[in-house]
Write a protein that binds this DNA or RNA. Structure first.
Lengths: 162, 162
DNA sequence: GTTCTTTGCTTCGAGTTCGAAGCAACTGAC
DNA sequence: GTCAGTTGCTTCGAACTCGAAGCAAAGAAC
């Protein structure tokens, strides 16, 4: 393995970090103005709204948005207090908490979404042709899969029982 | 303007967010283990190390890593306390603070870099061919340029009314 | 020169984030 | 059944982040 990334890799890496940072900042700004919610909260509502049932388990939500469990507990508490979400313990597993989006949550999502789309379109997709976007998606999808499949490095230094 | 992004755009957008989130978490983990520094601190040291003079102004650093000014003051303080960086006021502009990486800073950077490269290679570039990386870089570069050029929406500087 | 405005950085307070520790519910081995 | 281990979520403490407010130096207008 090389001790360094080649210049093309380095450029891609840096641009990736910078592009998402800038995009995230812009989106956060818009979400705050349009609906007074953070990016995390928006992501959570969006995931819930996308679900056929309008609900998810806490853990699945946390994994979905790449977020810590304790952080999710905190944010879910805020969303619940704001009436955008409801938390109920699952009947089949008393430990599990199901989070469900409320009508108010859906309304806020609907209110905020157009501006969100506008920002993403204007910043991320403006300089990209239709084919460019297709190519980008085609490149990122396998990377995403690979990352999802790769276990966290330090999480499994344990041997199987032997 | 469309009320929604088309499916391909949506996929590219989601994958972009998820990929960088996962990558960032992995990198943060590695940096903490290898040198007990955060990602922001690493980015700062890397930028300083890359500079021909080994130094930058505070503002340029903050802009470079897409970070708030106050946050940078805090991190620069930590880095200085750890002896990885020095802060000096510029002679030509008394307001300006120049941050310079120390030998200890360079040493830490050198110590941490190989593992960092390994994580990025293994997670981000593993599923991508050489041409893929070239294509990715070619797609992201113009987006980065566009974002840099596009002024924050609604961040109009306070002007005199009129 | 004086005054108004902008720029560069820091301080402050409020809110957010994480990991570790804690607790209750499920699972498996016996 | 019991007991150990795992899982799902929350609580806690410490650290980080941001924007607003503050201050001093630099620049512009006159």
């Amino acid at each position: 393995m090389s001790p360094s990334l080649d210049p093309v890799q380095l450029g891609a890496y840096f641009d990736l970090i910078e592009v998402t940072s800038l995009l995230r900042h812009a989106v956060e700004q818009q979400l705050k103005e349009a609906g007074d919610i953070s990016y995390v909260q928006f992501q959570l509502l969006a995931r819930l709204g996308d679900s056929p049932t309008g609900s998810h388990r806490m853990t699945d939500l946390a994994d979905g948005v790449v977020y810590s469990r304790s952080g999710l507990t905190y944010q879910a508490g805020l969303l619940e207090k704001a009436g955008l979400v409801e938390r109920t313990t699952s009947p089949d597993d008393e430990r599990s908490v199901t989070v469900t989006i409320t009508d108010a949550g859906r309304a806020l999502l609907a209110k905020v979404l157009p501006g969100h789309v506008e920002v993403v379109s204007g910043l991320l997709f403006e300089p990209l042709s239709r084919d460019d976007v297709k190519a980008l998606a085609g490149l990122l999808a396998p990377v995403r899969e690979h990352m999802r499949a790769t276990p966290p490095r330090s999480a499994a230094p344990r041997r199987r029982k032997g």
